[in-house]
Nucleic acid binder design. Structure first.
Lengths: 223, 223
DNA sequence: GCAAAAGTGTTGGGAGTACACCCATGA
DNA sequence: TCATGGGTGTACTCCCAACACTTTTGC
């Protein structure tokens, strides 16, 4: 049985105080004119993660270093693509704020779109990409609690307030700045102090941190 | 690019006070004579979950009702199968104790094997199935904490002690029976009392429960 | 000085652990 | 009546949400 295998990317970032995802406007049938997740075929001599890294580089010009990339799930309903049987392995990628993608890189327009808009159905996604995006969002939300994943949304160095902003945007909640500060700085291995400070918005300068080596947070950060 | 797509099953159960997994002895090259996870090709008109359900039924004769089945991950390294490019979607299945599979169903011998034996490397698995099994075990362990998944290892009706036994075997720890009892009966939606009681091993009869409707446990059951 | 943001101290209540104790059965 | 496992009560500890308060900057 001949199957086509693709990777699709749910690349999330935080821009303009909301969670946004990279989407491409489809130039061809099927679903011409609709938004879709970026993706492409897996090559002959390429692993799945490798293919996702390549797609990521093609879409954003980013080396994999600064981007968190993990397998999200695989979608293979018989007629999810009307042309042929395609099994798609979705990857979840999280990045710090990136520039708007250069136009015309791939003959198709790529843009940052608010996740909420694409999920609310006002702007329907191609294929089963709405389901994939929904699963990606859920995964990201859950992992913020018990893993240091939120740092993947931040630049190399960041303040506690910036990290808190990530949590607040992804979860859509407000967190107490004082307790949050204590929690994250007290969580072993979550943050590494750099010793440097910054002043960005007036007020007392904040310490700058880098991500630490911890892979799991306990106790978790509660919503 | 022509890919073959298969589903592989990590079917776990608890037998003889240990965690066991269904394995099949390979009758052909490659890896002839080695143990492997049960699996097979996805058919033309079949979804991925559907294929996993079919495999499960073929191996165990079980209807999907009583078995928990969820996608675990997808494995597609270029040369994981030396014959052709195979992408395998692994599913994690959890079941209550089942009879030893009938011999000769599928020309290959299927048997319950202790997970620890297969992971410790004393009995090497075919392909990348050791990695898949390891991922499945990790997933099961993690999900016991924050989901009512442990009930999937129990029969339709079960006692608190039987449920505790599941946790103790999967985690390899001992739990305080008294606090455990309070936690699980107090967790809303985890267990539904049937009103019936049973005496299995002498001692005071225990209440019988069924799984409730909760999908998430909070607070979680801690290791 | 005043506003604004960073960071610390304090406290009261809730949750979890450890363990003493009581309950219901079979032999 | 004893052994065995089921189930409840209770006290102590630790954690954490809430919020008052102090620190350090720009204007």
């Amino acid at each position: 049985m001949p199957f086509a295998v693709t990777v699709d990317l749910v690349l999330l970032t935080i821009r303009e105080d909301e969670l946004q995802v990279l989407a491409v406007r489809r130039g061809e049938a099927p679903f011409r004119g609709r938004w879709a997740l970026p993706g492409g075929f897996v090559r002959e001599e390429e692993g799945l993660l490798e293919a996702a890294q390549r797609e990521l580089a093609e879409e954003t010009g980013l080396r994999e270093r600064s981007v968190h990339l993990e397998q999200l799930g695989t979608y293979g309903a018989p007629r999810r693509d009307p042309r042929l049987r395609v099994v798609s392995v979705a990857y979840l990628a999280l990045a710090a704020e990136l520039p708007e993608p250069a136009a015309g890189t791939d003959a198709s327009e790529a843009r940052w779109r608010p996740v909420a808009d694409l999920l609310s159905g006002s702007d329907r996604l191609a294929f089963d990409h709405r389901e994939i995006l929904g699963d990606g969002l859920e995964r990201a939300r859950a992992k913020l609690e018990y893993s240091p994943l939120a740092t993947a949304f931040c630049a190399h160095e960041f303040t506690v307030a910036e990290l808190r902003h990530v949590y607040e945007v992804v979860w859509g909640t407000e967190l107490d700045p004082r307790n949050f500060h204590r929690k994250v700085t007290g969580s072993p291995g979550f943050l590494m102090p750099t010793g440097r400070r910054t002043t960005r918005n007036g007020g007392r300068p904040a310490q700058l941190f880098r991500r630490g080596k911890a892979r799991l947070l306990n106790p978790p950060i509660s919503r």
